[in-house]
């Protein structure tokens, strides 16, 4: 398959760009893979096994451990809404409601694949609550209007 071959090639590139092929490079490699494909697909893990000697199943264990890595596809941009104590005091439930309304079910990419959203633990932006992240960058304070705009643009 062409897509599969291109994923494999990209993963090899990512690994080659690291200072070594030891297992200690794994987390950084996975961040790059996630960034490139919005998830870590199995073929990427196969390539990691071949190049770095990390068993496919170990990579699966690692990917499912960390919130920022997924084995299921996310949108090209991910909106993460903090639901922890301070943000909750400042109305994060309204953000979540807006997301459910305009972006659909949590974790599911929009029809064009451009965006998905998820709730998350404290982002360390409590001074700007309610906080969110868009594409890995802080978006705080976030408003329901912003979430809806994101939805209107992407779905």
């Amino acid at each position: 398959m062409e897509l599969e071959a291109s994923i494999r090639a990209r993963v090899r590139e990512i690994i080659a760009s690291r200072p070594g092929k030891d297992r200690a490079q794994l987390l950084e490699v996975l961040h790059e893979v996630q960034g490139a494909f919005q998830s870590v697909p199995r073929v990427a893990a196969e390539e990691i096994e071949r190049e770095m000697g990390v068993p496919v199943t170990d990579t699966y264990g690692v990917v499912t451990f960390y919130d920022l890595l997924t084995d299921k596809p996310t949108g090209r941009t991910v909106l993460r809404i903090c639901e922890d104590v301070t943000c909750h005091l400042h109305g994060s439930s309204e953000l979540v409601a807006a997301a459910e309304r305009s972006l659909g079910p949590e974790g599911e990419p929009s029809a064009d694949g451009s965006i998905s959203w998820t709730r998350c633990a404290c982002l360390g932006l409590c001074d700007q609550a309610p906080a969110a992240h868009l594409g890995g960058e802080p978006l705080a304070p976030c408003t329901p209007a912003f979430v809806e705009k994101a939805g209107a643009r992407h779905v």
Binding site: A24, Q25, L27, H31, V54, F65, Y66, D67, L68
Partner: peptide, 22 residues
């Protein structure tokens, strides 16, 4: 870069994380 896991602030978990494990 951490992977999004509070537990990795605990020092031994942090080591495992750097080493490429859960």
């Amino acid at each position: 870069r951490g992977g999004g896991a509070y537990i990795c602030g605990e020092e031994t978990a942090l080591f495992r994380s750097i080493e490429g494990y859960r």
